[in-house]
Design a protein around this nucleic acid. Sequence first.
RNA 1: CGGGGCGUAGCCUAGUGGCUAUGGCGCCUGCUUUGGGAGCAGGAUAUCGAAGGUUCGAGUCCUUUCGCCCCGACCA
Length: 589
Amino acid sequence: MRMSKLFSRTLREAPNGADSKGYEYLLRAGFIRQLGAGVFNLLPLGFRAVTKIETIIREEMDRIGGQEILMPLVNPADVWKETGRYYSIDREMSRFKDRVGRDMVLAMTHEEVVTDLARTEIDSYKRMPLLVYQIQTKWRDDPRPRAGLIRVREFTMKDSYSFDVDEAGLDEQYRAHYTAYFRIFGRTGLPVIVVGADSGMMGGKVSHEYMYLSPIGEDTIITCPACHYTANRQVASFKKSYHKAEMKEMEKVFTPETKTIDELVDYLKIDKKQTAKSVFMVGTFIDDTNGEEQSKLIVGVVRGDLEVEENKLQNAARANALRPAHPEEIAAMGMVAGYGSAIGAKEGILVIVDDSVAESNNLVAGANEWEHHYLNTNFGRDYQGTVADIASAQAGFACPVCSAPLSASKGIEVGNIFQLGTRYSEAMDCYYQDIDSTRKPVIMGSYGIGVGRLLASLAEEYCDDLGLALPITVAPMQVHLVSLVKESETVDQLYEELTAAGIDVLYDDRKESAGVKFADADLIGLPIRITVGNRSLKEGKVEVKVRSNLDETLSFDLSTVVSETQALIGRLVAEIEARIEEREWDGSL
RNA sequence: CGGGGCGUAGCCUAGUGGCUAUGGCGCCUGCUUUGGGAGCAGGAUAUCGAAGGUUCGAGUCCUUUCGCCCCGACCA
């Protein structure tokens, strides 16, 4: 590609709103342009980078037996009604009617459509295992797109779906993806860790997320530096200590101006561990069969030294959605915000108690009376409810496996794998006939990678003060050929030779000053830069720099540039491939 | 959906009721220059996001609305 013909231009200044380095450079270097909130154009450079990522994904999916298909973005709502997700997913899924009034949706994932396909294609155990995948546009009307390509509404996703006769088969395909994903991220050069995850709206049980650790990430990942425990905070557990004692008589005391736990322990001169904290939420419960909604007040109780993890609470309550309760809603149920507890909870209120509270005795809790608390409350004796782990894991807490202090970091989810089981096959009547003639639901898995998010993560990881420095496996071109000579014939010829040898070249043939060309080359950051200038040309040489190490200058002989460049490309690719983690799932979450 | 911020040319930006809306980059023409965002001369490009209002006069004040960004709720 000749730079004089390149569609995009570089920008000297970052457009407003580009608040991370990776995003700023993707804009400035001309990889992407924004059209609207969470909606982006891919320009030639960005599109080429994405294409390279997709090629890697295709190769690795094909390696584990995947067959590429393409499912439609626009779906009739019927299949989504069959699984109930038409009702249970909020406005994140866009709906519309076609010209004759049929309900339609823009697909945000494809479990429904692929299950519909499978129920007609798969009728016998002999047809499985099967694996299909697609690389396709998804639309999710996210309420809060942000950070460039990190969190968008329209995006490209690789999603694959596995079909098996039994759990063992699913396990095998899950393992294959587990390993393939490490290979995919490894080949792109993105460092990732795998964490145990919540299965969220997808249903199913076993699930992992692939996280690129970055301060601009939105997920909090809990890791144990001592053993290998890692999990998304949404599901991370930790070892709790309990406050066991002989149960004492409950006693109501006057506690003025003690709406918070801090004020309470200050006033009573006790430890936070001796208190029980109640969090009031309103849960929405949606009937999957008809979409009828029901709201319920949920009281989550954790010990005062802990925080409620809302995701855990939502799962424990089996609610579709959760939001903080308004003071009026709390009052309507006869409870007092700031001085509330599960004691005296009315019928219809869902009480979920963390085991830290259930296993501790004589905790101070709200009396549901203005400026009053109870001393010595005990779960089971003074109030009832469901016991679950709903506490949020924090840095410093004890690892659930080895008790070492946990640490917390921020991460971007670039991939996920789910064992769906029979959630969709049962709901959509996707059954096969087994060897013993019985009808059984197909066992499914689903596996995703956000392609654009992967590029954005790579841009964050591979940049410096001058611009991008993407790995050679994903950079839009391999070589940036910079011409600093007036007589262009020699360079034109070199460009032709490199291209003819199958090398991707961006040829800066513009009539710009050397400074402009170098600055643009730094910004776009192609991995290999070949500079042709009078300085070295008179000795029959060209200068070569690797973008990731601009301090070092190599010199290639003009007659052997092509072969030397090919060797350098091979070396850079090998460097990345040497870092690929060949990892297998050990069966843990 | 709640809270905050911002919309002036392709990008960045000045402007605090008063003359023909500022400057830089970029763009066009000519000359010059070619190893780190060069120089000179000339030029084009803005219905100041939109609508309504206040005023003798509005980019500036008020109302409404649209868009974008940030924080929160949310999120595979």
